[in-house]
Each structure stands twice: as structure tokens, then as C-alpha cells.
Amino acid sequence: NQESVVAAVLIPINTALTVGMMTTRVVSPTGAPAEDIPRLISMQVNQVVPMGTTLMPDMVKGYAP
């Protein structure tokens, strides 16, 4: 099972992602793949992402898996 990126903390809208904001988990439906964490760092979210929420590609500005 592939791990997806999950918010480790509450991420406010327009916040640039840091490694400490993200964790990985096997979830369904799958979100952004765990191996993309290095690409996701410094990208901004376009909505509030509550802690424990799977990071879906459409939540991150300019990100395409």
C-alpha cells in the first residue's frame, strides 16, 4: 500500500509547506504520494488543511503529481 502525505498540524490557507507540517499514512482515497514530500516543501496550500487531513493534489498551488 502506498503512503500518502497527511497534515501533521493545522495548516492555514496560503501557508508554505515545511517538512514538519507533513507526515505519511496509508489512507483511502490516496492523496499526494509520500515520495513527493521534497517537491511539496515551500509550496503553498490554497485552503485550510486540518490536522490529520490527507493532502490532495488540488490543495497545493502549482502541484501536479
Rank of each mutant, 00 (worst) to 15 (best):
M43Q: 05
S28L: 11
V19C: 12
P38N: 10
I41W: 00
V48N: 15
P29T: 02
L10W: 12
P57S: 06
D58M: 10
P65L: 09
P57H: 05
T54R: 00
V26F: 12
S4A: 04
M21Y: 01
T18I: 08
E3M: 13
I11M: 00
I11H: 00
Q47A: 07
R39F: 11
D58H: 15
V27R: 13
P12C: 09
M56N: 04
V45Y: 00
G20M: 12
M21P: 07
T24W: 09
L55T: 02
T53E: 11
M21N: 08
G52P: 02
S28C: 14
S42M: 10
M43R: 11
A7L: 07
M22D: 09
L40V: 02
T30C: 13
P50M: 09
V45I: 04
M21A: 07
A34M: 05
M43D: 02
P29Y: 01
E35Y: 14
A64G: 12
M56Q: 10
T24C: 09
L55C: 07
T24Q: 08
I13C: 11
E35L: 14
Y63M: 06
V48P: 11
V6E: 00
Y63A: 04
T30F: 13
D36C: 10
A8W: 07
L55R: 00
G52V: 04
V5N: 01
P12R: 09
S42G: 15
G52W: 08
P57M: 04
V19I: 14
V6K: 03
G20C: 12
A34S: 07
P33N: 04
S28E: 13
L10R: 12
N14M: 08
V9Y: 00
E3R: 11
V27N: 03
T30V: 15
T15W: 08
V19A: 15
P33R: 07
P29M: 07
V48H: 12
I37C: 02
K61P: 13
L40M: 04
V26E: 07
P57R: 05
P29S: 04
T53Q: 11
S28A: 11
R39M: 12
P50R: 11
T15G: 06
L17P: 05
M22S: 08
L10F: 12
P65G: 10
T53G: 08
